[in-house]
C-alpha cells in the first residue's frame, strides 16, 4: 500500500511514466476492441512491430544523411521517432487494409510476413547504428522510465483526440464494422470510415509503441478486449470493461515492477495474461452454473 501511495504521489520521480502507462492502458483496449471485433488480431501483433521499425528508421535516418546525433535533444529524438512510427504504421495499415479488401491470398500469411520482416529490419538497422545503445533500445523495448513532460503532453493530447473521435463517430465505425452492406444502403461512405478507423489505430499504436514498446502495445491492444469479451453483455460493457482492465493492469503492473524491481512493460503484459486466464476460468464456472440452473428450471 505504501508503495502504491508513493507511486501515485505527485512528487514521485517516475510520475510521468506512471501517467503514460495508465493513459496507454486505458486507451489501447478501446481501439484494440475494433481489432478483436473485426477479427484482425494478427494485425494487432504486426502493427506495433512495424511501428517500432519506423522508430528505428527515423532515428537512424539522420546518421545515414551525415547529421551529427550529438546535436539532437531527447525531445527532438522523440518527435523524430513519433513521425517515423506514425508514417510506417499508417502506410502499413493502409496497404494491409487494401490487400484485405481485395480478399486475395492469405491474410495471416501477409501479416506474419510483415511482422517478421519488420522485426528483422529493426535489428539490422540498429546493429549498424553506434548510437543505438544510447537509450534507443530502451525506447524500443518499452522501459517506460524516462518520459519527459513533453512526451507525456504529446501522448495525452493525441490519445485524448483519438478517444474523442471514437466517442463522436462510434455509431458510424460500429455500423461499417458490423454490417458493411447495411452501411452502404444507408449511404455511408464505408471507405472513408475505414480510413478514419485505421488512422485512429495507427496513431494509437504509434504512441503506445513510443511510450511502452511493441510487445506491451500488443498486450494492451488485445488482451483486455479478449478478457472483457468473456463477460460483456452489451457493447458499452465491452468497451468499459476492456478499458478499465487495461488501466488497472497498467497501474498494478507498474506497482509490481517498482516494488520487486522488474521491467515495467513485461510485468504489465504478464499481469494482463494472468487476468485473462482468471477471467476465462471464471467465465467457464459461470457458464457451467448458469447451464445447470437452466436445466434445473426445465425439469
Amino acid at each position: 500500500m505504501e508503495t502504491l501511495l508513493q507511486i501515485l504521489s505527485p512528487d514521485f520521480l517516475l510520475r510521468n511514466s506512471v501517467y503514460t502507462s495508465i493513459l496507454v492502458g486505458f486507451a489501447c483496449p478501446l481501439v484494440g476492441a475494433f481489432l478483436v471485433l473485426r477479427r484482425l488480431v494478427f494485425m494487432g501483433v504486426a502493427l506495433p512491430q512495424i511501428s517500432s521499425t519506423g522508430v528505428a528508421v527515423a532515428l537512424s535516418a539522420p546518421l545515414w544523411f551525415g547529421v551529427s546525433q550529438a546535436t539532437h535533444s531527447s525531445q527532438s529524438d522523440h518527435t523524430i521517432a513519433f513521425v517515423g512510427s506514425v508514417v510506417f504504421t499508417l502506410v502499413a495499415i493502409l496497404v494491409l487494409a487494401f490487400l484485405e479488401r481485395r480478399g486475395r491470398g492469405l491474410a495471416e500469411g501477409r501479416l506474419g510476413t510483415a511482422y517478421v520482416v519488420a522485426a528483422a529490419l529493426s535489428i539490422l538497422i540498429l546493429s549498424k547504428n553506434r548510437y543505438a545503445e544510447l537509450g534507443w533500445l530502451d525506447l524500443l523495448k518499452g522501459e517506460v522510465i524516462t518520459i519527459s513532460n513533453f512526451d507525456l503532453a504529446l501522448t495525452a493530447t493525441a490519445l485524448g483526440l483519438v478517444l474523442g473521435i471514437l466517442a463522436l463517430f462510434h455509431k458510424e465505425l460500429f455500423l461499417v464494422s458490423f454490417d458493411r452492406a447495411m452501411a452502404v444502403t444507408l449511404r455511408k461512405n464505408v471507405v472513408f470510415w475505414d480510413i478514419v478507423l485505421y488512422l485512429l489505430l495507427g496513431i494509437t499504436v504509434s504512441l503506445a509503441v513510443l511510450s511502452v514498446g511493441p510487445l506491451i502495445s500488443f498486450g494492451f491492444l488485445l488482451i483486455p478486449a479478449l478478457a472483457a469479451h468473456l463477460f460483456a453483455r452489451t457493447m458499452r460493457q465491452f468497451l468499459l470493461f476492456a478499458s478499465l482492465l487495461g488501466g488497472f493492469a497498467s497501474l498494478a503492473g507498474f506497482w509490481i515492477a517498482y516494488k520487486w524491481d522488474f521491467p515495467v512493460g513485461p510485468a504489465d503484459v504478464v499481469l494482463l495474461g494472468v487476468f485473462y486466464g482468471m477471467a476465462w476460468i471464471l467465465a467457464k464456472i459461470v457458464e457451467r452454473v448458469s447451464g445447470k440452473q437452466s436445466r434445473q428450471k426445465k425439469w
Binding site: R39, F174, S177, H229, A232, T234, M235
Partner: peptide
Amino acid sequence: LDPLYPFTGFDVALMGSYG
C-alpha cells in the same frame, strides 16, 4: 452478421436510424 459483436437486439435495430 458476425456473432462476435456484443450488440443487443435494440442496438442492431437502432442502426436503421443511422441514415
